[in-house]
Computed example of a mutant assay.
Amino acid sequence: MTRLSLRALGALALFAFALPALAQTTPVGTWRTINDDTGEPQSLVRIYERDGELYGEIAGLLPEGRVCEDCDEEYRGSDMKGVEILRDFERDGDTWKGGRITDPQSGKTYKAKMEVERDGRLKVWGFVGFDSPLTRRTQYWERVQ
């Protein structure tokens, strides 16, 4: 093999290994949410794209079969499957913003942003009014393979 073909083969191999990493920069997929107080897995959220915007629905509570007892009256006693908690996120570079997130435990809806971190976790933060450390609550979700 010539030196040029070896370089081309090496570049192709690097590109092939980089593709899975590049594909993971989108929030589309299923994520495990973590309880802020206990650090335990809480639910699975499926994020999907519709008309160029991202939406997300609860795919299940953890452990499986659990129902939400602490939720707002609308959801109390429900397994929560199919409840849309993320809406209207638009891409802005590596961040998805302009969206809203609903906390099913309180029934309250907040402005929100999200982005995939370098470590592969999804950083999701909701806020009241404008986004600042004083008005923000941040969670890190783990991708489910």
Rank of each mutant, 00 (worst) to 15 (best):
109 T>A: 12
81 K>L: 11
123 K>L: 15
133 P>W: 10
132 S>W: 08
94 D>Y: 08
46 R>S: 10
66 R>W: 01
117 E>P: 00
2 T>N: 11
65 G>H: 09
9 L>G: 10
71 C>V: 07
44 L>E: 11
40 E>F: 02
122 L>P: 06
71 C>W: 07
91 R>T: 09
86 L>I: 15
33 T>E: 02
29 G>D: 08
13 A>W: 13
10 G>P: 00
91 R>Q: 15
59 A>R: 08
65 G>M: 04
107 G>S: 12
110 Y>H: 11
59 A>C: 03
33 T>H: 03
78 S>K: 06
81 K>E: 14
10 G>D: 00
84 E>Y: 00
108 K>T: 13
98 G>I: 04
120 G>P: 02
83 V>A: 01
62 L>A: 04
6 L>N: 11
34 I>Q: 01
32 R>N: 07
89 F>E: 04
14 L>A: 15
127 F>P: 05
62 L>E: 06
95 T>A: 12
77 G>M: 03
88 D>P: 09
48 Y>A: 01
98 G>V: 06
14 L>T: 14
18 A>M: 14
39 G>M: 05
5 S>R: 15
25 T>C: 10
41 P>M: 02
105 Q>F: 12
142 E>K: 15
84 E>K: 14
130 F>E: 08
111 K>Q: 12
134 L>Q: 09
142 E>A: 11
21 A>I: 14
4 L>M: 11
104 P>K: 04
93 G>S: 06
106 S>C: 10
120 G>I: 08
55 Y>K: 05
59 A>T: 00
73 E>T: 12
104 P>H: 08
115 E>F: 13
54 L>T: 02
78 S>G: 08
87 R>L: 01
104 P>N: 05
36 D>G: 05
77 G>W: 03
144 V>E: 14
2 T>K: 07
95 T>V: 15
47 I>R: 01
98 G>S: 06
79 D>I: 06
27 P>W: 10
17 F>H: 07
125 W>I: 09
